[in-house]
Nucleic acid binder design. Structure first.
Lengths: 181, 181
DNA sequence: CTGTTATGAATGAACG
DNA sequence: CGTTCATTCATAACAG
């Protein structure tokens, strides 16, 4: 379909900063509000929204700017993946076999990783209810109790078994001796 | 050369909805040695180091100054991307500005053209002996003789991004009520 | 001190 | 899903 038509060139100053620079647009550029809300949802525990959820979220967020379902879809996917990756990588930092530092470091120990606040909400599969994180007055609609169980978490969602099996790299005999200096 | 100690200003960038100006400050500033070594690795063919490799490299380079895994990760990502980017310029130069792409779809992108194949290095023949960090699977049956040395056999990778979420509970008129009814 | 360049960092999009 | 690519943003480094 051509719901894009005009495409989206409205760029919101998300990074703050004058923003005037990002006059170019080619990909979705979420507004601060959109990001904030998406983040809230994520923090609430939403990890893999279903199609319906994506649709709804998208609709709601469209109020703050151009947005499509796929954007929401990708956002969650990326956010989740990134969260994991980040965690994965922040594991070492100070495991140097050679603790001989001829160099004097007045303040080494930069184990600070951007205040990564990885509060994983692994035990919240009932996000559905939690999704009402927005305290808009008790709302008249209260909430639908039958909202079915969004068991997307354990959804099969996998028509293809796909067992590519990541060739478990044989113990990398990493030598990596950067000695050629 | 730049032998600055470089400081670190952990600062949140995004999420600066409204008021907050996403002022970022402080970023890794590699030392000459670090850059040299990274370049060597790159030149010898390392393009997408695995997590393990990244960690090792990071550890080793920390000897020359502050550095984190992500720095290494980004460095390679950027370096590689840069190469390609530049390469692209030289190749196409300025074909025809016919930029009428079919736009993107939620999950269908027929415009899949980049099969990428132009990023292979061509001079990593002299892989330094000390750089044998490539696990090269041994299951080379017979037709595996070619094995792209270190094209993209690596896995595990990923940048970490974003930071904590600003608790700026001050949304004017949030409607985001994802009532799944 | 100011404009420009180089490059670190971030993230949307998409592949396998 | 985890990984990888491409593009953009921000800032240290540098030239004038």
């Amino acid at each position: 379909m051509d719901e894009y038509s005009s495409g989206f060139c409205i760029r919101a100053s998300r990074g703050g900063n004058g923003g005037g620079t990002g006059t170019k647009c080619g990909r979705w550029n979420p507004t601060s509000e959109q990001v904030k809300l998406l983040t809230e949802l994520f923090r609430s525990g939403l990890r893999t929204p279903s199609t319906d959820q994506i649709q709804k979220i998208s609709s709601q967020l469209s109020f703050y700017g151009k947005i499509e379902s796929k954007n929401v879809f990708y956002w969650f996917q990326n956010h989740k993946a990134r969260e994991r990756q980040k965690r994965r990588r922040v594991f070492h930092v100070d495991d140097e076999p050679n603790n001989h530092h001829p160099l004097q470091h007045p303040k080494l120990t930069p184990t600070k990783y951007y205040g990564d606040d990885i509060n994983d909400v692994v035990e919240q599969e009932r996000v559905i209810e939690t999704l009402q994180l927005f305290p808009l007055n008790n709302l008249s609609e209260a909430h639908s109790e039958r909202l079915r169980l969004f068991t997307d978490n354990c959804k099969e969602n996998g028509p293809f078994a796909y067992n590519l099996g990541p060739r478990e790299m044989d113990h990398p005999t990493l030598d990596l001796r950067l000695s050629f200096v």
